[in-house]
Write a protein that binds this DNA or RNA. Structure first.
Lengths: 185, 185
DNA sequence: GTCAGAACTGTCCGATCGGTCAGCTAAGGT
DNA sequence: ACCTTAGCTGACCGATCGGACAGTTCTGAC
C-alpha cells in the first residue's frame, strides 16, 4: 500500500503532533511515530530530512500566525491594543492547542529554533511572562504576550478535559483582561 | 580524595538540581551530573540506587512543605484562606525556585511519582490550574493552587534574571490576589 | 508491456543511555 | 601493623536512540 506523498506527510505530522503533545519531543522516538503512522522508521526519514524537521514543520504555522497577529496589532494602541491582543492570542491558543502544548513541554529544546520561519524566540517570550507577572514592564503589550504562555500552559491540561470550547474562550479572555487590570466593561 | 558520604550526597544533589533545572530531567544524563560533580558515573549509583532516586530526594522537601502548608491552611476559610494560601505559595516558590522549575519542566514525567513522600499529584495540580484560569471551580482554594503553577513557571525564567527577591515577592503576591479578584485592600 | 522515478523498507551503524560488577584505595578502629 | 569497611572507579552490558543506505515495490506516463 503506497500512499500519496502529501497524504503520508500529513499522516506523519498528525501522529507526531499527538505524540509530541503527550510524551514530549524528547520522549517520542522515531519508532514511536512510525508505529503510530503504520510505516517504517526509514519511511519517516524519506519524507522528512530528520526528526527536527518534523517538529519544525509542525510548528511553522504557529509562527506564521503569530507574526501576522503582531503585524495586525501594530496599528493599534492603548486599550484597543490590549483587548485585540488578548482576543487574538486566546483564539490562536484555541486553534493550536497541541502546538502550544508541545512548545511549553520542551521549552529548553525550543529556545533556539531559527530554522522555523517566524518562530517566536521562546526565551524572549518567557521574559515577557516574567514582566507580565511581576509588573516590571510598563508596556501593556509585553504583559499580553506573557499571558499567552499561561494560556498555553492551561490548554496543556484543558485539552484532556471536557471543557467546552466556548467556555474556554470566554473565561480565558475574562481572566486575562482581569489579570491585566482591564476588566470587561 | 575521598569525601564523606554526607558531603558527597549533598554535592550530587546540588549539581543534579542545577542541571535538571536548566536541561530538564530527561535532558540530563548521569554522565553530565558526574562530570559536574567531579566523580565517576558509577559513584553516583553508589550513593543513589538509580537516577530517579536522585530526583526523588531532590523534590521530597517540596512535597513535605506543601503538605505542611495545606495543613496550616485547613483551619482557615474565606478571605483569610485565600490570602494565606497566596502568601504561603509565593514564599514556597521563592524558597524552592529550582525545584519548581524542575517540576514544571518535565511535567509528564512527574505526573505519577508515588515514591516521593507527600509529593503533590501534578495531574491534580494542573487540573486545579485549569479550574483557576477558566473559573470553572467555585472553590477559591482550587484557584489559589492553580496560581501556584503559574508562579512556578514565572520563576522558571525569573531565576535567570536579576529581579530582586523583595520585588518578586511583592509583585507576585499582588498579581495573584488581583487575578483572584481579591485586590490588596 | 516497458520503464523511470516516487514511495517505501530491512538492515546496519556509531553514539549514548541507565545500570551492574569486580576490584582498587584510603581511612579508622583495634 | 593489621584488617575491615566505606568510598570510589574502569570496564562492561543490553537497550535504544537518530540516522544512513542499498535495495525492493508500486504507480503512472508512454
Amino acid at each position: 500500500m503506497t500512499r500519496s506523498a502529501t497524504t503520508m506527510r500529513a499522516d506523519i505530522l498528525e501522529s507526531a503532533a499527538r505524540l509530541f503533545a503527550t510524551a514530549g519531543f524528547r520522549g517520542t522516538s522515531l519508532q514511536d511515530i512510525a508505529s503510530d503512522v503504520g510505516c517504517s522508521k526509514a519511511s519517516l526519514l524519506y519524507h522528512f530530512t530528520n526528526k527536527d524537521a518534523i517538529l519544525t514543520e509542525l510548528l511553522s504555522p504557529v509562527g506564521r500566525e503569530l507574526a501576522e497577529l503582531e503585524e495586525r496589532l501594530a496599528g493599534l494602541d492603548g486599550d484597543e491594543a490590549v483587548r485585540g491582543a488578548v482576543a487574538g492570542l486566546v483564539e490562536l491558543s484555541l486553534r493550536f492547542r497541541r502546538e502550544a502544548t508541545i512548545l511549553i513541554h520542551d521549552l529548553d529544546a525550543m529556545t533556539s529554533r531559527p530554522e522555523v520561519p517566524d518562530m517566536p524566540d521562546m526565551k524572549a517570550l518567557t521574559e515577557r511572562l516574567v514582566d507580565a507577572l511581576t509588573g516590571r514592564s510598563g508596556d501593556p503589550r509585553a504583559r499580553v504576550w506573557g499571558w499567552m504562555v499561561l494560556v498555553g500552559v492551561t490548554l496543556t491540561s484543558a485539552a484532556d478535559l471536557a471543557v467546552p470550547e466556548e467556555t474556554l474562550r470566554a473565561e480565558l479572555t475574562r481572566g486575562a483582561l482581569r489579570a491585566l487590570g482591564r476588566p470587561i466593561h
